[in-house]
Design a binder for these strands. Sequence first.
DNA 1: AATCGAAACAACCGCCACCCT
DNA 2: CAGGGTGGCGGTTGTTTCGAT
Length: 222
Amino acid sequence: MESSNPEGKKRGTWGREEDMLLKKCIEIFGEGRWHLVPLRAGLNRCRKSCRLRWVNYLSPDIKRGCFTADEVDLLIRLHKLLGNKWSLIAGRIPGRTANDVKNFWNTRIVKISSSPKTSKPVEETKIIKPIAHKMSKLAVSKNKPPPPPFNEEPQQNSQWFSNVLDTAGTNKINGIQNGSFSVGGRNEKSYAGDNYPTKTDGGDGVSEFSMGLWKLLGFDDV
DNA sequence: AATCGAAACAACCGCCACCCT
DNA sequence: CAGGGTGGCGGTTGTTTCGAT
């Protein structure tokens, strides 16, 4: 059923025509300036609706289909670490959106973990909430790195390397070579420009944060 | 084939933080 | 420093699809 909000903006499911207009608009003007998008695209939708549709559905970077076992494993680890910080979690699972991750968690994982067969005693876990986008935005805008809580370098031949890099040194998650372990997807931009936590970005302090993140994810001999 | 409930997916809402003036 | 505008997030609700009966 089609409806509209009090401002007369259309709501509900997007149609093919609307998708096309939005896509075209983003291709021409790029992402951002969402308040201008409805006008530019000729859409009777609110800015939030346009942004959400692009971010969660139309963006070419989005990976559709079932979560792989690796992704599920990573999701569980990240959730254990970060709690319901869906955007942060999605940022570490390339091609997945915060909405995807959230939906997946709420519809599958919660169910699995609450089923009597598979449920394990709930461990007391300390949820770390770095509020990374805030932190890193500050780091970028004020040219000041966030406090680097961790600083160990991964050892060659460690479990971490075998989990993240293949024998040729290619990152199994993002396909980047030369030992880079940036696992950031398109959401990276939201947090700190294009290079938030990467090993190779060097010098801005956030790479150490990433090291600690991976360590906390259970790659113990990092 | 029809109906119903559950599961999965898509979209909206309210809030908050940041940026700019 | 204050206030308005904007972007982005998490929670929640609505809609669609699927499977069982």
